[in-house]
């Protein structure tokens, strides 16, 4: 009896906390749009954050994309060989990479790299009162720290996805050439032949949402970190978990929408 009541109370309090957190997060996200259009604009900091989120992520995204293209081609080849459909390999790889694997894997890599950095960076700034120091200096910390970071991930993720797709296809070309002799031009013309506007555009649009989710979740977790240094680690950790999960949810929604079109 006592245990049942305890469990019920615990469920109620957890639900209440979840709802409060969701409401807080929605308000935090809505504030982004309000602050984004309000001058002064933080161009310099936004460009710096684009450099940090985009340029510094290139090596990791590049290596992952290369391995992804290589493995996908090597794994798919035997199955296609059974049906004598090896010539379809470039087209199959290009559609898989551009539509799904490229955006999702890039977003997951960025959730780990950028989301955790933002959570930890802003979390540390919160617990060491640096955000308060900005506030008391009449500097809007949300605008300076959050708007610039969210904008940078939103802009940079589609670009990283394009780079990752290109590297993956190049790796696929190398993998194809292990067993056959195919020229680069021939490979890419076969790969592009299978791609249509409906493959490329939804993938790029969902990358924008992935980037926005990674930025807002990372910043939200860091900006609202409370307590001591343990909360910094917790902010970074939950930023990665929640943004990774949100990537799959956004992916599921966009796939459903794309199917309807």
């Amino acid at each position: 009896m006592e245990t049942a009541r305890h469990n019920r109370n615990r469920t109620i309090s957890l639900t209440r906390k979840w709802m409060t957190d969701t409401g807080d997060f929605l308000l935090f996200t809505l504030r982004y749009f309000r602050e984004l259009i309000k001058p002064p604009f933080e161009w310099r900091e936004t460009i710096y954050q684009c450099y940090k989120s985009g340029y510094t992520s290139l090596p990791l995204v590049g290596i992952t994309a290369f391995i992804m293209g290589l493995v996908l081609t090597l794994q798919s080849r035997p199955s296609l060989s059974v049906f004598g459909a090896e010539s379809l390999l470039p087209g199959m790889v290009s559609v898989s990479v551009v539509r799904e694997i490229g955006p999702v894997i890039t977003a997951l890599i960025c959730a780990g790299k950028i989301g955790s950095r933002m959570g930890a960076e802003l979390g540390a700034m919160r617990v060491t009162e640096q955000i308060d120091a900005m506030e008391v200096s009449a500097i809007n910390p949300y605008k300076y720290l959050v708007v610039t970071r969210v904008t940078s991930t939103t802009l940079m993720l589609p670009l990283l996805v394009v780079v990752a797709d290109a590297i993956s296809l190049f790796a696929s070309f190398i993998a194809v050439n292990i067993h056959a002799d195919v020229s680069l031009l021939q490979f890419f013309s076969q790969a592009m032949e299978k791609l249509s506007y409906k493959d490329v555009m939804p993938a790029l649009i969902k990358s924008v949402f992935f980037g926005f989710a990674i930025g807002t979740i990372g910043c939200y977790k860091g900006f609202n970190a409370a307590g001591g240094t343990a909360s910094v680690g917790k902010a970074a950790n939950t930023a990665v978990i929640v943004s990774s999960l949100s990537i799959f949810i956004i992916d599921l929604i966009t796939v459903q929408i794309t199917d309807l079109l």
């Binding site: 700034m125 060491t128 009162e129 640096q130 308060d132 008391v136 009449a138 809007n140």
Partner: peptide, 28 residues
């Protein structure tokens, strides 16, 4: 914020921006 410009606040742990040098902290 206008009022805050007339007020200075020294934090207990100084709260210097740790990603900026001393020069950048003061110039900020």
């Amino acid at each position: 914020n206008e009022l805050r410009l007339k007020m200075g606040f020294l934090f207990q742990n100084s709260a210097l921006y740790d990603s900026m040098s001393v020069r950048q902290n003061l110039a900020f």
